[in-house]
Design a protein around this nucleic acid. Structure first.
Length: 472
RNA sequence: GGCCCCUUCGUCUAGUGGUUAGGACUCAGGGUUUUCGACCCUGCAACAGGGGUUCAAGUCCCCUAGGGGUCACCA
């Protein structure tokens, strides 16, 4: 049984990189018939943002990546929030001290800073100078009762750690380069490294799928597994998602915020689809996938090693493809919040569906709707430059009266009937194509672009159509 | 700077020794259309550079360059 986990820290909103990590974990779990666990890594009390956990869970849910186990969900391996598991980490830390693989360190922050500064001045790799590692053990144990301390990993001074990564292949790390990592902070909370290893072990995680920024800490983690006498899981590190400047995409950047995209009305399945392709591809030419299809196609071995730039334009294209495939009624439902403060907010459902149907195939985001629906406005807008030119043309001056004349002769016609006589009017005055239809479009909407006239006329109604044409 | 990693069109990528280096987005041109989308067609555009190995290299090796990650009592 494969068990994977997504282990974010609740320091803010879910970002795009995190969502992709969650997605690959989810896909791998579903693909292998395994379990997808959510674990909250809230060991940093300073950066903790209240409410972040709930919003993380909500975002995952919206995107369809609902965990099988996790906080508020349940499971046999809980609790799934690290701050509720402190005892377990202390026990592990004690075990490491007992076996001589970890030691207390009493160095002050000031001394650490000083050491680091000197090392950097000398051009050396910055790292702890292991002063407290030389302390007599019984003396150190005694000092722990009265002094503040951290617990550090006693990294072997030589040798190397061999690592086979599911994505990166063979990567080996000389132990001489590995720092005596802090495992327990002076506030009694574990650092990521300890908590992560202990939890992955106790939650029986079989595959750790996480961002490339963790690759460099693999030797520390592997050492921890060894010292704790636990068989390590398999690791797969994912290439970074980059911004346009090719730097690690951060959540502070607009494009990096999952909530930001959702708020702008990108369909969650579209975001998921796009993000799946950042660092992975199915090996054929298909590009539009839903979650189920991604699950079927996903393979860890097709994940890349190089970082990929997040391209909002391509996301837009994928989003549009999803809108074209979605049901109009479904889109109309999702559109309501985006139309709430517009004149379209009060529209009856079937009318709204009709309107949205006319712009659906050009939609990228729901927040484009107020603009795209403008041609349907009950208020005739001031015509723009192009529109005025059409109205002022000689063609318009003959075409519009001719159409008006025909329209007036009709008795409560529907949109199709109105359209039929437009053609007749055109024939009568010898005008067709764009010269015939554009003056009419401008007269109806004040704009030179928009959805098809049939829907616009249907929405306006006979009276208003006549009214607008008369004013030209 | 040390260590680790990466490098095919502007972007996402296919490619596992023999290809006219393929696809997608973007962009440009054309077609279609009752305008704009959408749709269809065409086009522009890449193996970072240099050495090897080989009959043959985008594919293997080395070097250089560029880029990134990491060097916290943050994750």
């Amino acid at each position: 049984m494969t068990r994977v986990r997504f282990a974010p820290s609740p320091t803010g909103d879910l970002h795009v990189g995190g969502l992709r990590t969650a997605l690959y974990n989810y896909l791998y779990a579903r693909k292998t018939g395994g379990v997808f666990v959510l674990r909250i890594e809230d060991t940093d009390r300073e950066r903790h943002v209240s409410g972040a956990t709930d919003s993380l869970i909500e975002m995952l849910g919206i995107c369809g990546l609902t965990p099988d186990e996790g906080p508020g969900i349940g499971g046999d391996y809980g609790p799934y929030i690290q701050s509720e598991r402190l005892d377990i980490y202390h026990e592990a830390a004690q075990q490491l001290i007992d076996s001589g693989n970890a030691y207390p360190c009493f160095c002050s922050q000031e001394r650490l800073d000083q050491v680091r500064k000197e090392q950097q001045a000398r051009g050396e790799t910055a790292g702890y100078d292991r002063k407290c590692r030389a302390l007599d053990k019984s003396e150190a144990l005694k000092r722990m009762e009265s002094e503040p301390y951290v617990i550090r990993l006693a990294v072997p001074l030589e040798g190397e750690i061999k690592h086979y990564d599911l994505v990166w292949g063979e990567v080996d790390f000389p132990l001489a380069d590995v720092d005596d990592q802090v495992l327990m902070k002076s506030d009694g909370f574990p650092t990521y490294h300890l908590a992560n290893v202990v939890d992955d072990a106790s939650m029986e995680i079989t595959h750790v799928i996480r961002g490339e920024e963790w690759l460099i800490s693999v030797p520390k983690h592997l050492l921890l597994y060894r010292f704790l006498g636990i068989k390590p899981p398999k690791f797969a590190h994912l290439p970074l998602i980059l911004n346009q400047d090719r730097q690690k995409l951060s959540k502070r950047e607009g494009a990096g915020s999952v909530a930001g995209w959702l708020e702008r009305g990108i369909l969650p399945q579209a975001l998921i689809n796009y993000i799946a392709f950042l660092g992975w591809n199915p090996g054929d030419d298909r590009e539009i996938f839903n979650l189920k299809e991604l699950t079927d196609a996903f393979q860890l071995k097709r994940v890349n090693r190089s970082g990929s730039v997040f391209d909002p334009t391509k996301l837009g294209w994928i989003a549009n493809e999803h809108f074209k495939r979605a049901g109009t009624a479904e889109i109309a439902l999702l559109a309501k919040p985006f139309l709430k403060d517009t004149e379209f907010g009060a529209l009856a459902d079937d009318s709204l569906v009709q309107l949205i149907g006319s712009v659906q195939k050009s939609l990228h985001r729901l927040d484009e709707l107020p603009e795209k629906l403008k041609p349907f406005s009950a208020h005739y807008p001031p015509p723009d430059e192009d529109a005025r030119q059409w109205l002022a043309s000689d063609g318009a001056k003959t075409v519009i009266p001719a159409i008006l004349d025909k329209w007036k002769s009709l008795d409560e016609p529907d949109a199709d009937a109105l359209l039929v006589v437009v053609n007749e009017a055109g024939k009568a005055v010898g005008v067709k194509g764009k010269d015939l239809w554009m003056p009419l479009r401008v007269a109806m909407t004040g704009m030179t672009a928009g959805p098809e006239l049939r829907v616009i006329l249907a929405h306006l109604g006979y009276k208003e159509a006549i009214n607008r044409l008369s004013k030209m």
